[in-house]
Amino acid sequence: MSIYDFKVKTIKGQEKDLSDYKGKVVIIVNTASKCGFTPQYEELQALYLKYKDQGLEILGFPSNQFAEQEPGTNEEVQQFCKVNFGVTFPLFEKGDVRGDHAQPLFNYLTAQAPFKGFDESHPVAKGLLNALNTKFPEFLKGDSIKWNFTKFLINKDGAVVTRYEPTTVPSAMAADIEKLL
């Protein structure tokens, strides 16, 4: 089994077979559809522009499951939203990424790549852990998706290679991507 066994829906509701990405290095990421804690969009877009000609695809799956509780950051909250978040890589239909109604793709990804903790040196790690402990302590159990911008790096055979928590910025994934391309 691999990610190629899954079908998903595009943001316009059309069915997309993940086997269409055979032979590509793929990043699957759950994104936030609200405005606010979204600086990772820009870095993901930068990775996409840098490596897409070499065969990288980024697939974004918006979810509202964490949207109401943004971890505190020191950055000023922007008072506007970017349409499609200013990214040109494909975004898919909004859906759950954890819990009873999680999309099967995310159940598969989290089973393949267990949760190994947050990088506590990242500036949002503390706020994120506090928010989870206070609001969603059950989210911390098991291997499920913990928050927006959990990233899965997939090799050219459709196998999950590495899981990166929200506390790993996309730019830090560059060396791992290059190894797989």
């Binding site: 922007q78 008072q79 506007f80 970017k82 349409v83």
Partner: peptide, 19 residues
């Protein structure tokens, strides 16, 4: 650019965000 909200009356001057 593609940021919202943008408010305009005359289609040439506009206000971005909730200002």
């Amino acid at each position: 650019d593609l940021i919202v909200p943008v408010t305009t009356i005359d289609g040439s001057t506009y206000v971005t965000s909730f200002d």
